[in-house]
Amino acid sequence: MEDDNLDTTDTPPEAPESPDTPQLRPQSLVLAFFGNHVLDEGELCVYSGSIIDVLARVGTGEQAVRSTLTRMVNRGLLRRQREGRKMFFGLTPQTVRILKDGGQRIWRDGAVNEDWDGTWTLLGFSLPESWQRQRHDLRSRLTWSGFGALYSGLWIAPGRVGVHDIVSELGLAAHVKIFHAQADEATDIGAMICESWDLESVAARYAAFDKRWAGGTGGTPADPMATRLRLVAEWLRIIRTDPRLPVQHLPPEWPARQAQETFRRIAEETAGSAARMAGELLETVPLRSA
C-alpha cells in the first residue's frame, strides 16, 4: 500500500501531527476499511451508509466521509454503483493493486529487514524545472518503495527494488536511469544511511505506536472493528515512511521489532470479532461489470 495515493488527500490534517497524536485522514481510514473488510471478500460494493457508520466509530464525521468517497471516485480509486435509492462503493483495479501492495508490506515483508544481501538499487533522474507535479509524484512513490535521497537527483534503496513499473506508470522512463550495485568498502554505509534517511523520526513513530497500543490507549476494547481499523491505518502510516533498512546498520535496540510484535498481537486479537461485526453491520451488493 503506498504509493502516494494511499493517504494523500486534497486537504491538510485537521490538527498538527506528532508521533503521539496521529491524525488519520479520512482517505487513509476508507482504504483501511476496504483493505480489512472488502478486498478478500470478492467483488463487492458497500453501501455508503455502512461506511459512514463504521468511520463514525473512529471519529470521522459524515460530511468528511462523503466528500472523501466522492474525491476517491474522481481520482479513480473507487467505483460508484447505484442500487435503487442507495449508493454503493467498490474497488477499482488500481486500488486493488494498492491494497495488495500494502498487505504485502504489512503482513509479509514486516518492519525489520534481516535478509539484506548487500545490494543497493540506485535511481537517478533529471526532470525539467517546470515538472513540479511529476517530481512530487516520483519522490512520493520512491519514498513508499524505500528510497532515500543520496543526492537531489540520485536516490538509493536497499536490495533489488523493482521500480520499472512505477517509472513507466508516471511516464518518466526517458528521464530515469536505474542501477543495481554494491558499496565499495571505502563507503561508510552507516553514515550514508544517517545522511539519506531521517532515522530519528522513523524510530520515534515506532516507539510512540508501541507505547500507545501496548498500553491499551490506541483502541476501544468494546469495539474491535474500530480498534482494528485505527490499528491498521496507523501501522500503515508508519511503515510507508520506513525504508526497511538493513538491521545490521541501524542503531541498537531499533524499536520497529517491538512495535511490530504489538501490532501483530492486537491485529490477531481483533481479527475474528471485527470480521463478525462487519458481517452484521455492512450492507453489500455484488460489483457489476464496468
Rank of each mutant, 00 (worst) to 15 (best):
M1C: 06
M1A: 08
N5W: 07
N5F: 11
D7Q: 01
E14T: 14
E14V: 14
A15L: 09
P16N: 15
E17N: 14
S28A: 13
L29D: 15
L31M: 09
F34W: 04
N36A: 15
V38R: 06
V38H: 07
L39G: 06
E41S: 13
C45H: 14
S48Y: 13
S50K: 05
V54F: 08
T60N: 07
R66Q: 04
R71T: 14
M72C: 09
V73Y: 05
R75T: 02
Q81R: 05
E83F: 09
K86A: 15
F88I: 01
L91M: 01
R97I: 05
Q104L: 11
R105T: 06
R105S: 11
R105D: 10
D115S: 07
G118I: 11
S130A: 10
R135G: 08
R135N: 11
S145V: 06
G146Q: 07
G159Q: 07
G162L: 03
V163K: 00
H164Q: 12
D165P: 00
I166A: 00
E169W: 01
G171A: 00
L172C: 05
V176S: 10
A181C: 09
Q182N: 11
I189A: 08
S201L: 05
S201E: 04
P221V: 10
M225Y: 10
R228N: 11
W235G: 01
L236N: 02
I238E: 03
I238V: 13
R240E: 13
T241I: 12
R244G: 06
R244Q: 07
L245I: 15
E253P: 00
R257Y: 14
A259R: 04
A259C: 03
T262H: 03
R264I: 12
A267R: 02
E268R: 07
T270R: 00
S273Y: 08
